[in-house]
């Protein structure tokens, strides 16, 4: 039986980091990821009152995905600088072991860059699977596509990553 967080605070505590990592890997930008976390939690706070017991993960990630896409559409409507594609170092500045941490992150720079080059649908499927850790069934519910489509997107995404990385 799936355990369903009952309060907004519990959702924030349990899923905040997951949402942040989802958004960071989709955008490559920590400020955008932080904005998305706050937007998602706002929507969760509003939506929890009417939440019907079922697949909480599917519900939460559908909200997260929709919030992300809404933000992308909003930005596309206004003339601003494009999202930077390099790792933003601000979150490391206060760490006593910032150099070690940056070294750890820069190892993944090429992987992050390759992820950002994927078409959105493939990137989203790969990130939900490999970063967030959702099953194909959970991804299908979140993205509202058949499981077979999820399977296809993940595999095609990985094949494109292979061309970039290997």
């Amino acid at each position: 039986m799936e355990s369903v967080p009952l309060t907004w605070e519990e959702v924030a505590r349990v899923y905040g980091r997951k949402i942040y990592n989802f958004a960071y890997r989709l955008t490559g930008n920590s400020d955008d990821a932080a904005d998305l976390v706050q937007e998602v939690l706002l929507r969760v706070r509003k939506g929890l009152a009417s939440y019907q017991p079922g697949s909480f993960e599917g519900w939460l990630w559908r909200i997260t995905r929709n919030a992300f896409l809404d933000e992308v559409r909003r930005r596309n409507r206004r003339p601003t600088a494009p999202l930077p594609d390099e790792v933003d170092r601000w979150e490391l500045a206060s760490s006593p072991s910032a150099d070690a941490e940056y070294s750890r992150i820069s190892i993944g720079d090429d992987v992050q860059k390759a992820l950002l080059e994927l078409p959105y649908e493939f990137r989203e499927a790969v990130v939900l699977c490999d970063i967030v850790g959702l099953s194909y069934e959970e991804i299908a519910r979140a993205v509202a596509v058949p499981v077979g489509t999820v399977r296809s997107r993940i595999h095609r995404g990985r094949k494109l990553l292979r061309e970039s990385l290997i």
Partner: peptide, 18 residues
């Protein structure tokens, strides 16, 4: 390779509850 990407911590103060 994708799964080896570092799992980032939330920026301090972003979600006090977390």
């Amino acid at each position: 390779a994708v799964r080896s990407l570092p799992l980032l911590e939330l920026p301090p103060g972003l979600i006090p509850e977390a």
